[in-house]
């Protein structure tokens, strides 16, 4: 079953083409990792798939419906998006930040309906945040904030989750923890799209990999078919060697 389908999408910024005739599908219950060098167009592809950036040409379908035909709120109820290094400006409590994930479900005025409180408790519990619920979000460590943001993104039970560099700035333990949680969400039936620079981590959690360079999709498909020596060497313009072991794959680069 196809969930999100990006069809022949081109995006231009000024005279530069940042996304060039990209076509790719993302399925429900699968975790797709988007890889590629800096400036390859990963974030642009994610923004287009999230419906935050209208495609110049081409179209994006969510379960067969064009994203441009969906209202903001309708879209927000079905897909969640986390940008790179998300921040919280004010000293809002963790519980409140997670509740913001329900913005699209709430009436224009008034407080939080009681039915949603359970969902918030569930999300706090799922991401081990129960003890932190009253802590101001400005006083969290990087790993804690990453968990809060994932809880915020998934509290409304989205069918599609798009995350840009969730492990940026996290130490190995927290990066692995965040990646495992994304894997769990995909196993639960959510379509998860993640942009990652850490290829070892990508090899560990990805079902599918989309390899991008210069705004073009160079390769996409099952992780083991894309994470190969020739594709990675060509992608990063540096010799890459993939060694597979029982607990995943290690990618080494040789200058």
């Amino acid at each position: 079953m196809t969930m999100v389908s990006v069809e022949d999408v081109t995006v231009r910024r000024g005279r530069r083409t940042v996304l060039d005739a990209a076509s790719v599908q993302f399925g429900a219950g699968r975790l797709a990792v988007v890889i590629g060098p800096n400036g390859a167009g990963k974030s642009t592809l994610l923004d287009v798939a999230a419906g935050l950036l209208p495609p110049g040409t081409g179209r994006v379908l969510l379960d067969g419906q064009s994203l441009s035909s969906l209202s903001r709120r309708e879209l927000a109820k079905r897909r969640a998006y986390l940008p790179q290094s998300p921040q919280v400006d004010w000293a809002i409590s963790v519980e409140r930040v997670v509740a913001l994930g329900l913005t699209a479900h709430l009436p224009a005025f008034g407080g939080l309906p009681a039915t949603w409180r359970e969902r918030i408790d569930l999300a706090l519990d799922r991401f081990d945040l129960v003890d932190l619920r009253d802590r101001p979000a400005t006083q969290l460590s990087g790993g804690e904030l990453a968990r809060v943001m994932l809880a915020r993104a998934t509290v409304g039970d989205p069918a599609l989750l798009i995350v840009d560099e969730p492990t940026a700035g996290l130490d190995p333990r927290h990066a692995l923890d965040a990646a495992r949680r994304l894997r769990t969400l995909a196993d639960g039936g959510c379509a998860v799209i993640v942009a990652l620079h850490d290829l070892d981590l990508a090899a560990r959690i990805a079902d599918d990999v989309v390899a991008m360079k210069n705004g073009r999709i160079e390769a996409h498909g099952l992780a083991e078919t894309v994470l190969t020596d020739p594709i990675l060497s060509d992608l990063y313009d540096i010799e890459a060697r993939v060694s597979r072991t029982a607990d995943g794959a290690t990618i080494r680069f040789h200058a």
């Binding site: 209202s71 998300p86 913001l100 224009a108």
Partner: peptide, 21 residues
């Protein structure tokens, strides 16, 4: 009328937009 949008805006412009604001 801006209350709900401002709450979401505490997460930054991109996240607020993604939340349907």
């Amino acid at each position: 009328c801006t209350g709900r949008g401002l709450d979401a805006h505490a997460l930054g412009e991109r996240q607020a937009e993604s939340l349907g604001v």
